[in-house]
């Protein structure tokens, strides 16, 4: 800002010399009359376009129009993108139709609340799983006691499964 006070700069001297650029002396003698003559003339009615052009800067208007177009395109693109995403997650709209069916079933009783059983051994109880599910599964009985369900069968008067050997007999003291 120091150049503001420094009057010796060539650019300022050059600008100051512009003050001497004047039209011919006759110009200002007739100027006032010309204005007053024009003042008496009826004003030509401006067209809407002329009025608009006077009020609106065309560059700014073009920029605003461009911004509106870009904005609309972006909104449209987001909208389209979300529609595509929805379609991809539910192919053939099956999930949607099922949901619609389920919702529209009348008298749909809500599931009874499941009591939470908290125990040291039952971790799932905290998540509200039913007790049946939470019960420790037992292995098939056949694996625990092989041959338990088999019946002894007698072939020609003798039991095949019965071992009568003496080595296999346990003698209990009497």
């Amino acid at each position: 800002m120091e150049s503001d006070t420094n009057k010796t700069e060539p650019i300022q001297e050059l600008l100051a010399s512009k003050k001497q650029e004047k039209p011919g002396k006759e110009f200002f003698k007739t100027f006032s009359d010309q204005v007053l003559t024009r003042l008496e003339e009826p004003t030509p009615k401006q067209t809407t376009w002329e009025r608009l052009n006077e009020k609106v800067d065309p560059i700014r208007a073009a920029a605003a129009l461009f911004a509106i177009v870009i904005g609309s395109a972006l909104i449209f693109a987001f909208d389209e993108g979300s529609t595509i995403a929805e379609t991809e997650s539910n192919p053939l709209d099956q999930a949607d139709s099922r949901m619609m069916t389920d919702i529209t079933i009348p008298n749909l009783a809500p599931a009874p609340p499941i009591p939470l059983i908290k125990s040291k051994n039952n971790v799932l109880a905290e998540f509200g799983a039913p007790k049946e599910i939470r019960a420790k599964p037992e292995p098939p009985r056949i694996l625990m006691n092989p041959g338990a369900n088999l019946k002894a069968r007698t072939v020609k008067g003798s039991n095949l499964l019965r071992n009568n050997s003496s080595s296999n007999r346990v003698n209990s003291p009497k």
């Binding site: 100027f31 006032s32 007053l36």
Partner: peptide, 22 residues
């Protein structure tokens, strides 16, 4: 008063013109 208008024009015409011209 149009004479007053004329006076105003004459008073400021040079400065207004030269501002626009520059």
């Amino acid at each position: 008063d149009m004479e007053a208008c004329d006076e105003l024009i004459q008073q400021y015409q040079e400065r207004i013109y030269s501002t626009i011209y520059h």
